[in-house]
Design a protein around this nucleic acid. Structure first.
Length: 867
RNA sequence: GGGCGCGUAGCUCAGUGGGAGAGCGCUCGCUUCACACGCGAGAGGUCGCUGGUUCGAAACCAGCCGUGCCCACCA
């Protein structure tokens, strides 16, 4: 028989008596069972019904199968789950689309490393066996990250898990490739790419990072062919001179005007190089003459194409010099070749100088290897036409960025978008659906492999390359829902509502999803893009395993609870980068415990057979807490909907600590026998748990099992009823503001003059506005309030007047204290009087501001008088 | 070179036109019958610098200093 780990066998709420001995919330002991209960409930798996406009959905940024949960995931997940649970509890059909990414290059490298440690390699295994091995690697490790998301409490639809290499998903990817090819966006070309020798593949511009480095800048003399002199060029990469095909000067440079059209001779090689004129050349850099190497420099490549220069390739994809580099250099590594070329130039007397030179050097973000720009045969995607609609939809706010400043960043990049190299020389991934006939050089792009060549009936060979990972993730929001089939899921959950991410993948992923979404579904893939903080290490460096600055969120979850980590993440999150500080997690841990104990007080006070849970206010503090509760609910909703998560966390903390526990519970402790109060307390507790649940699902779910009705299930599945009427009560709020202010004044006085907190003090109220509040104030401030009592020993300023203290001990201390208080009030009054005496202020400031200042002055004057 | 941020209490950060805030840390007090992961009280700040706008600036503008990130084709 199956028993729900949380709800148990019966539908009765759990016995309140259990709580007697549980004086602390112990997350590690209860969270696993709560996770099981949620997963088994099916609450996270909505049936695909209705339209996307009435439902709520978010597609998770799919974690890599290689990954383990890091702080970035924890933050990203905490935010999304807050949104998801909030909307689910609003009663909307809510789906958090979940899955993992095959992460072509990252995964392949991981498995390659494993093979290396076993003394073998992917080449030795062969393509088929290697891919099989990656699949089995995925079987073994791919679930880790999924379990970790569950541990965080992320309420994803795990029953509908996707993988970017699932058969259906792969079909969608190949279909898109074929379609884009038919529409003329894809073509194959010899073109300059960023070659990553570390992974043996081309990578995209976005995967290149620049690092400042100091190299040597060599000056080399190229003699003119007619023997009339020489041109001196400068380079940090002398080895590439072997592939030079021209020398360029600026057309406006008078020094060289005569030489344009002449020829120079390439040292070591002897090749004749035309001297050409191109605007790219900066006359004031070095000698003003530039060696042009179209095969190994992106700028020179452009110049070369402009002038129709030959393209020599002297560096191969293996990072070694090719045969084209000449016998003396072929087979050397780039570094060896550099030394050899410099030596040879020196010997020839062509070296004119060397100096240290600091410049930006491209490195692979993937492998860390230095990028080798070279010409390679790749598939490229033309982006300019796709960008148009993707720019439109952001301009007209169909897609909104939060915070808004990212809009311009996105638009700037989109406006200058460049072709995207989509082929990768890897094995793990979506293999290009491109087939070549070697016999007649025909090319076929087709979803299903053609049998034979249609032209010559020859055999076909499939392209060896796979697609850039981001090509398949660009389809994520709709390919996960069954696209291109018109599924019910697609109708119900696409377009999605929000995309939550850090800024680093705005271009890599967000922009491409928007382009592909518009191109293939005709709709934007999401309405809101929330760009959250990047969490740095406590010392401000990047959090990374390799730097040793990483902090494992799972350890923190085990130690302090998932609620604590989630709360901490939200509290830390920001629209700018923030340093990780464990104090925020600890704050969350304390908040969970506080909530737990507040609930204990309420429930143990009420006892085993509770009455109704309904607001039945009989005292001003009841009306006050109901009013504050409603404001808190409204604020939390507003903060969540405007993606202001730090203040979601703060508002929750302030309400629970500041209003519910410090004041309301303390105020009503002596009334716990009243049935009306019990009803109100149960109501307030249930509401608080519901509102807090999206942020701290575990402790709230645990407590819910003690306050729910028999016919209610999990808190995660509660659909909150819309409020009827409003409990906001300005009078009650003003009244409690006085009581709280007076209580704090009395406590301050006690502290200053040494009257113990437990001692009841005889006093007389000399202030207005306390008529109904006398018993309440007496209780909470421990006063024995009397009508008379003669002259007071001293007095304490309280809102609206003063409190005469009728018995005391140390007269001198009292008088000193009272003097200080008078001085404080007098100074404040002086400041206000001066302000109000300023005609410019009275004339120019808004009337409401002036009135408020006058009112305040009157109040302070009354307080000073009463003293 | 261009762009976007940030500089507020010892630390981490809110505040963005009318009384300088939170959490942690610190000091003092409290075996108050939910919680010592607790309760109460308190100390602590030329709001980076300079100038401007305004009756009024931490907030708006300009410049400067410091710091972080993104983009970019100077060998």
């Amino acid at each position: 028989m199956h028993v729900c780990p949380v709800l148990g066998m019966s539908s009765e709420p759990r016995a309140i008596s259990e709580l007697r001995t549980r004086t602390r919330f112990e997350p590690a002991a209860v969270e696993p069972a709560l996770i099981r209960a949620w997963l088994e409930s099916g609450l996270f798996h909505p049936e695909p019904e209705g339209e996307a406009s009435e439902n709520y959905s978010i597609a998770i940024p799919p974690p890599n199968i290689t990954g383990a949960l890091h702080m970035g995931h924890a933050l990203n997940g905490a935010i999304q789950d807050t949104l998801i649970r909030y909307h689910r509890m609003l009663g909307r059909r809510t789906k958090w689309i979940f899955g993992t990414d095959h992460a072509s290059i990252a995964t392949q490298r991981q498995v390659e490393r494993e093979l290396e440690s076993l003394g073998t390699s992917r080449e030795e295994l062969g393509r088929e066996a290697f891919i099989e091995r990656v699949w089995s690697w995925r079987e073994r490790y791919g679930a880790t990250i999924v379990e970790q998301y569950k541990r965080l409490g992320a309420s994803c639809d795990y029953r509908d898990e996707r993988f970017t290499l699932d058969p259906d998903y792969a079909d969608a990817v190949l279909g898109v490739f074929v379609e884009l090819h038919e529409r003329g966006y894809l073509h194959r070309d010899h073109y300059m790419v960023n070659w990553d020798p570390g992974s043996g593949s081309a990578i995209s511009d976005l995967e290149v990072e620049e690092r400042e480095e100091t190299d040597t800048l060599y000056s080399i003399a190229y003699p003119l062919a007619d023997g009339s002199g020489e041109l001196v060029v400068a380079t940090v990469r002398p080895e590439t001179m072997l592939a030079d095909s021209a020398v360029a000067v600026n057309p406006a440079d008078e020094r060289y005007a005569e030489l344009v059209g002449a020829e120079a001779v390439l040292p070591l090689v002897g090749r004749r190089l035309p001297v050409i004129a191109d605007d790219y050349v900066k006359p004031d850099f070095g000698s003003g003459a530039l060696k042009v190497t179209p095969g190994h420099d992106p700028n020179d490549f452009e110049i070369g194409r402009r002038h129709g220069l030959p393209e020599y390739s002297v560096i191969g994809e293996d990072g070694r010099m090719t045969a084209e580099a000449g016998e003396a250099f072929a087979g050397l590594t780039v570094a060896e070749a550099r030394t050899a070329v410099v030596a040879a130039l020196e010997q020839e007397g062509a070296l004119r100088g060397r100096e240290p030179y600091t410049h930006a050097v491209p490195y692979s973000h993937r492998s860390g290897a230095r990028i080798e720009p070279l010409i390679s045969l790749q598939w490229f995607m033309r982006m300019d036409e796709l960008a148009g609609p993707a720019i439109e939809c952001v301009l007209d706010d169909r897609v909104r960025f939060h915070p808004g400043r990212w809009k311009q960043v996105y638009l700037d990049w989109m406006g200058a978008i460049r072709p995207w190299c989509v082929s990768r020389q890897l094995w793990w991934g979506h293999r290009l659906p491109v087939y070549y006939c070697d016999a007649c050089e025909e090319t076929y792009v087709a979803r299903v492999r053609p049998e034979r060549c249609g032209a010559c009936d020859g055999p076909l060979r499939q392209d060896e390359d796979v697609l850039d990972t981001w090509f398949s993730s660009a389809l994520w929001p709709f390919a996960t829902l069954g696209w291109p089939e018109p599924t019910a899921a697609l109708r119900a959950f696409y377009p999605t509502d929000a995309l939550v991410t850090a800024r680093e993948i705005i271009f890599l992923w967000v922009a491409r999803m928007i382009m592909m979404g518009l191109q293939f579904t005709g709709e934007v893939p999401f309405a809101d893009v929330y760009v959250h903080a990047v969490i740095q290490a406590p010392d401000g460096r990047r959090m990374s395993k390799s730097l040793g600055t990483g902090i494992d969120p799972l350890e923190e979850i085990e130690r302090r609870g998932a609620d604590a980590v989630r709360f901490g993440m939200l509290a830390m999150s920001s629209t700018q980068d923030v340093r990780y500080n464990v104090e925020k997690i600890e704050q969350g841990e304390r908040l969970a415990n506080k909530l737990f104990n507040a609930a204990r007080f309420v429930l143990l006070g009420i006892g085993e057979h509770p009455g109704p849970a309904a607001p039945i206010p009989t005292a001003v503090e009841d009306r006050w807490i109901l009013s504050r509760l409603e404001r808190f609910e409204l604020e939390l909703a507003q903060r969540i909907e405007s993606y202001d998560f730090p203040r979601v966390a703060l508002a929750l903390y302030d309400f629970v600590y500041g209003e519910l526990c410090d004041w309301y519970i303390e105020l009503v402790k002596s009334r716990i026998e009243e049935p009306e109060l019990r009803a109100t307390l149960r109501f307030v507790l249930r509401e608080t748990l519901q509102v807090a649940h999206p942020v701290m699902p575990f402790v709230t779910e645990e407590l819910w099992q003690y306050v729910r009705e028999p016919d209610e299930g999990l808190l995660a599945g509660v659909a909150r009823a819309p409020r009827e009427g409003s409990a906001i009560d300005a009078d009650a709020e003003a009244a409690l503001e006085r009581v709280i202010g007076a209580t704090q004044a009395v406590r301050r006085w006690r502290n200053e003059v040494g009257v113990a907190p437990g001692v009841t003090v005889a006093a007389r109220l000399e202030a207005d506005g306390y008529a109904e509040l006398r018993p309440l104030l007496a209780r909470i401030a421990r006063l024995d309030l009397r009508e008379d009592g003669g002259d007071g020993v001293t007095s304490v300023a309280i809102p609206g007047g003063a409190l005469a203290i009728l018995e005391g001990v140390d007269l001198a201390a009292h008088e000193q204290r009272r003097e200080r208080e008078r001085a404080r009030l007098a100074a404040e009054i002086e400041r206000l009087r001066a302000k109000l005496a300023n005609d410019a202020f009275v004339a120019n400031a808004p009337p409401a501001v002036v009135a408020a200042e006058r009112e305040k002055l009157a109040r302070l004057e009354a307080e000073l008088d009463a003293l």
